[in-house]
Amino acid sequence: MSILVGKDTRLVVQGITGREGNFHTQQMIEYGTNVVAGVTPGKGGEWTLGVPVFDTVKEAVETQGANTSIIYVPARFAADAIMEAADAGIELVICITEGIPVLDMARVRTFLDQKDTRLIGPNCPGLITPGEAKVGIMPAQIHKPGKVGLVSRSGTLTYEVVQALTDLDLGQSTAIGIGGDPIIGTNFIDVLKLFEADPDTEHVVLIGEIGGTAEQKAAEYIAKHMSKPVTSFIAGRTAPPGKRMGHAGAIIQGGEGTAAEKIEALEAVGVKVATLPTEVAQLVKESMG
């Protein structure tokens, strides 16, 4: 009952010996995620947290059958790490790293067009299928298994909404952070498509923010292709134009990308948009009855 990650996930951690990578690997293992390998070039042959470390992703795939990768390497090496994973045949790559130059990501996305790899992120918290696998940095304890699929451009804001859902006894099928950068691997529509096809997701929550037009495009998609109800929250109603609000992608430019236009587009296709993050949970509860 989930999308993208679950019991079949065989995870390789790129950057497993780094401080962040090591800490979160431990957390993921404690949650029950099947971490089969780590990669740090030059540290092949070592072990950490009971996990074998390899020099290359290719070896991790060949030796351990890794099918999913999570990337914690610093920004200047992250684009390379994504391409290495894709080249090694990894099906799903989750890049947590923040601050990758945009042109690097433009090249990576074009490279990925020729591969069968799905990228989530960068600059994202990862994803979790509660009770099965956590592939990310989110606090696990706020989640519970259930039927609400959640997709978001943000990290902590997502936790806020997840907590509110769990407080109302609304569990999650899968919760995905797609990242706050201008160029990301998987967008709202890709995830909506997966949730629509997932028999165990009954309701979808979409958390957007200022910048770009991804929410408007999602609205068009919802109108045409979604039978499941969608509830939303859009952050940044009070954000001024022309200023980057933390996330590289969260900027109103040339009058485009305001919260108001996103909310309007979503409401126009029947999506309920909450005023406060916690209100999302109440709207979902009302809708699910």
Partner: peptide, 27 residues
């Protein structure tokens, strides 16, 4: 003062919702 960009924006929005104005965005 907030951790996370999305939550920081949402916090500004909530301040406004309750009748005041945020002085800053800070993650």
């Amino acid at each position: 003062m907030v951790n996370g960009a999305g939550l920081a924006m949402a916090t500004m929005d909530i301040v406004k919702h309750y009748g005041a104005e945020p002085a800053n965005f800070l993650d």
